[in-house]
Each structure stands twice: as structure tokens, then as C-alpha cells.
Amino acid sequence: MAAKGKVKKTFLSGLGADNPIFAQVLGICSTLAVTNVLKNTVVMVMGLIFVTSLSNFTISLLRNYIPSRIRMMVETLIIAAYVIIVDIVLKAYVPDISRQLGPYVGLIITNCIIMGRAEAFALSNPVGLSVADGLSAGMGYGYVLIIIAFFRELLGSGSIWGLRVLGSWWTNWFIMVMAPGAFFMLAIFIWVVRGLITEREKEEVKS
């Protein structure tokens, strides 16, 4: 089935070749902000996956009716509505995490990945494909953040998910908890991944 193949291809591209973090380098602000504690990161990632997939869904559904002149206003409105929903739900059902995330949840609105996917994909593709694209962009963002957060929390606080795993012999690297630590981790991550991808591309060209 051609359609199914397309969905799969769209879905995989966000995780790999078109990954929002290491290929497009989008959404870096939140990557720097939330990745020092794994728990906050996971909540942020779930919020983002929810918002990208649903905003892509809604915008794709309305794509033939949105006047192109005001499309950005409509997109922002739709995205903002979903972000507010995430914020309210967190406040009501997981108040502790909501308190820790503070203003970060509201800032999902400004995450360029969501607007980027809406503009570049949802406006010109059918609903199913757009949802796949939104999910994939969100998850592509998500797993990179979780990997970065894992190392930042481990090296910066000696703990994982708030539980101390490294003994008292471990001296916390405080730079890992602060924003510069995220720059280093992100840069190393991009370097490793891009290194691997280009290596493979070179080999493919040779053979």
C-alpha cells in the first residue's frame, strides 16, 4: 500500500534524517532549559508530542478553509489552545511537576518545531500523514532531549530520575546543571550523530 509506506516514511524521517534537533537544529531553547532534570524533560516531551500531533491534526483538517493571508494567526491560536490545555491538565492532575516546570509549559507555544511542522507540513498534507509527521517530530525531539537529560542529570547531580545512583565519591559537575552544560551535551550529541551519518553516506557513495 502506497499510503501506508508514505506514513511510515514520514514518521521515520522526523526520528532520523529530518530530526528537529540534530538535523534542523530547532527547538533549542527548551533543549537548554529543561534537560537538567530527567523527570521535567519527560513531561515536557510528552507535552510537546501532544501539542505537535494535535496541532498538526487540526491545521491539516482545516487546511482547505484557512485563508492563506491569516494562516499564521490561525496556527498560533490553535497551538496556543493546545498548550493551555496541557498547562491546565498538568496543574490539575500532577501539580508537583507543574510547579517544577513553571513557565516552561507556557513556552511550548514558542517552540519553533510546532509552528515549523504546521507551516511546512500540515498546511499541505492530508490529516493522517500530518498526525504521523507531528508525532514523529515530537518524538524525534523527545528522544534526543531524554538522552541529553540522562547524561546531564547523571553528571550534574549524580542521580537519575531524582534517585542518587553515583556514590559520594562522585563530585557533581555543576556546569552540567546550568545552561552551558546543555550546549556541550547537545554539541557532542550532534557531533556523534552527524559523524555517524556522514560516515555512512561516504561509504554509500564509494560503493
Binding site: 537538567n36 532534570v37 521535567n40 517544577q100 513557565p103 542529570e153 547531580s157 555543576f174 546550568m178
Partner: peptide, 9 residues
């Protein structure tokens, strides 16, 4: 409090 998670928090 809105201090830095992992540090001031």
C-alpha cells in the same frame, strides 16, 4: 519559587 531546577530549586 521559580529557581533553577537542579540548582536553586
Amino acid at each position: 519559587q521559580n529557581e533553577t531546577p537542579g540548582l536553586g530549586a
